[in-house]
Amino acid sequence: MKFHDQDMLAVVCHAPQDYRLQRVKRPAAGPDEVVIKIASCGICAGDCKCYAGAARFWGDQEKNKLSYVKPPVIPGHEFWGHVVEVGEGAAEHHGVKVGDRVIAEQIVPCGKCRYCKTGYRWMCEVHDVYGFQRDVAEGGMADFMRLSKRAVVHKIPDSIGFEDAAITEPLSCAIHAVNRGDIQLDDVVVIAGAGTLGLLMIQVAHLKTPKKLIVIDMVDQRLELAKTFGADVVINPGKQDAEAIIRSLTGGYGCDVYIETTGAPIGVTQGLNMIRKLGRFVEFSVFGKDTTVDWSIIGEEKELDLRGAHLSADCYPVAIDLLARGLVTSKGIVTHTFALSEWEQAIKVAASMDSIKVLLKPDA
């Protein structure tokens, strides 16, 4: 990797709960590469769970699972910024120039595995995601960032505001998850979890005009926001019997589509109980620990269509278009913005119930 003589400020992940603010070498653009000045980088639930040491990221000796994270690495995959340097051939390769507002998909596909070759690059077998793999995918919690030759880069129109641009990555993931639900006009849809992803899924699912859109969350303020985004019914399971309410609204059968984005095991078991036979269950969350369920519910009892939703598929262009047309908004979702040097407080707030989406910005 090429570097400038100058250095820059970056958060560097060394191990679980060992992240440090450091001066590191600023990347330079090699052939077909682009360097961007970071405008903002969001902190997602996965970042918080990685920081806390979840086995999903750091491996599990008992299960002979190796660490996915390759430290030391600069974290952050919800980034966007302005092009400040293009390497030889990069303008043609990526279709960008200095000054453009751009974003790169969170995964850097290898282009060689069976998934990349058959059009499923988000499932790339190598699976280099920005912010986790050091060699080709240093992340966006820094002043500057290098986008490699293999990066999938998209322009962000000037008409899209700062905070809307900042939610492009999670919105792309939300669109993919909703698409996996294959929502029909006569469906009763339940979205469990009204964090950043859930609130974006609500807006996207509302555009599909299902018969009824129901949202479940433990935080009343988030449920109120869900109503403004198109939820027909909101349920706080800490105060109400969610399953009883949904059965009362569906003739006793249960919902047609259940999208799980709580990140908590109860979100899974709750959904398996309240979805109807032959329903479509979409699992999106990143979990911090294992979930145990009676799998006979999936097969013997209900014959469910169980679908995973991973990353963003080919949804970045759709996300950018929806934001440009004002059909999806970040209003009320981006709750906190911190300077890069305040990263420790930012992660703490992001991991709490006092925030929805937390952004990091380079220090002025």
Rank of each mutant, 00 (worst) to 15 (best):
D294S: 10
A313L: 05
I202E: 12
V126K: 13
Q270A: 09
D290W: 02
K97R: 10
L327C: 01
D217I: 04
I191N: 01
I275C: 00
L304I: 01
W80N: 11
G81M: 00
S67L: 07
L359R: 05
I183D: 04
G288M: 01
L311Y: 13
L197P: 00
L311W: 06
T335H: 06
Q270Y: 03
H93T: 13
D220E: 14
G95H: 10
R146K: 15
A54W: 08
V190H: 03
G30K: 00
I191D: 04
G299H: 10
I246E: 06
H336K: 14
Y115K: 13
I160T: 09
F284H: 12
D232N: 14
M8Y: 01
I74E: 08
G271T: 09
H176E: 12
W80H: 13
K331V: 11
A91D: 07
P317T: 12
I333A: 10
E224K: 10
C41Y: 08
M8H: 01
E300W: 09
A264R: 14
A351E: 14
V178T: 05
G332C: 04
T168E: 02
W343D: 10
V73S: 09
V328F: 02
E301C: 01
W122Q: 11
L225Q: 12
A91F: 01
V215Y: 12
H336Q: 14
E243G: 05
H82E: 15
